[in-house]
């Protein structure tokens, strides 16, 4: 983690926004190419991933599983894999060309992230929801035992908060003062069957995490100017005896006008015309894969 409290410079933001535009192109092209996958949540979390991998995380694209001396990141809501794969490839973890293989046979880019074929950047399989927070807490405790000063990050979905294991993990981390951990909750308000509030409402999710003994903060996830200082503030709140969670509001499908804000784009791919329309809205800044 860069221990900077300086505001992020305008040119830096501009660079990150260019990366985000290209990553969004990758996402829609990947799910279109295999006609499956989850574009909505992927588009909604693009700023978060770009901010993490291109600014906040201390990480090494040469990748080793233990990540000693590095910040490490776990993705619990594994279905937003196209976003993660794009960001990993564009960070240098594996060749961009490999994005073509997403969800196809004999690929390392499985529908949901997996370690079995040794894809650099992925440390645990995820997809069956509710498990990533426990894993991240375990990794954070391993770092403490090893005397490693770096931070463990994890991203969870909002619908995923309905899983009981999340709350087992929440209770544990507060009790054991796992304070080298920063969790982020992608609060886009949508899940497969509809708005989260209609499916099973999270009610006052901030109060819930506070009641479980966490340091809680809120952020806007689709604005890099707001998100980066908030994530830096989250890290600054760590090491004070409490785990930290950032409840990050995002819009599902952000960046593609016909996908924004609807659960309908949770898990379906665009057709040819929709792809063309989406790509018209997203500047090709770094070259398509």
């Amino acid at each position: 983690m860069n221990q900077t409290t300086e505001p992020v410079s305008a040119p830096k933001i501009e660079t990150l926004e260019k990366i985000a535009s290209q990553v969004r192109r990758d996402i829609v092209r990947m799910v279109h190419a295999c006609q499956s996958g989850h574009p909505g949540g992927s588009l909604g979390c693009t700023e978060f991933f770009v901010a993490m991998y291109f600014h906040l995380l201390k990480h090494d694209p040469k990748f080793n599983m233990q990540g000693d001396g590095e910040d490490i990141f776990f993705l619990s809501n594994g279905h937003i894999s196209p976003l993660w794969y794009s960001v990993l490839a564009r960070s240098g973890y594996f060749p961009l060309e490999e994005l073509k293989t997403f969800r196809k046979i004999n690929s390392r880019l499985q529908g949901h992230p997996a370690t079995e074929e040794g894809l650099p950047g992925v440390r645990i399989a995820s997809g069956s929801l509710g498990q990533g927070l426990s894993v991240a807490i375990g990794a954070a405790q391993a770092k403490k035992l090893s005397g490693d000063p770096q931070t463990v990050f994890v991203l969870m979905g909002d619908g995923e908060q309905q899983e009981g294991q999340i709350w087992e993990a929440a209770m544990y981390a507060a009790h054991h003062q796992v304070d080298n951990l920063v969790a982020t909750l992608d609060y886009n308000g949508q899940q497969i069957d509809g708005p989260v509030d209609d499916v099973i409402s999270l009610k006052n999710i901030k109060a819930k995490w506070e009641a479980f003994g966490w340091e809680v903060m809120e952020s806007q996830g689709n604005d890099l100017n707001q998100l980066i200082p908030k994530m830096e503030a989250a890290v600054a709140l760590s090491r004070q005896g409490k785990p930290v969670i950032n409840i990050m509001s995002t819009e599902m499908g952000y960046g593609v006008d016909f996908m924004v804000g609807s659960h309908k784009w949770h898990g379906i791919p665009p057709n040819d015309q929709q792809l063309a329309s989406a790509l018209d809205q997203l500047e090709e800044t770094l070259g398509d894969y």
Partner: peptide
Amino acid sequence: PERFFQVGIAEANMMGLAAGMATGGKIP
């Protein structure tokens, strides 16, 4: 005591914690 982790009655969490500790090079 520093290498023993009381998890409470929360076995699902225990399995995830163990997976995370193993990722960090421990043998849980």
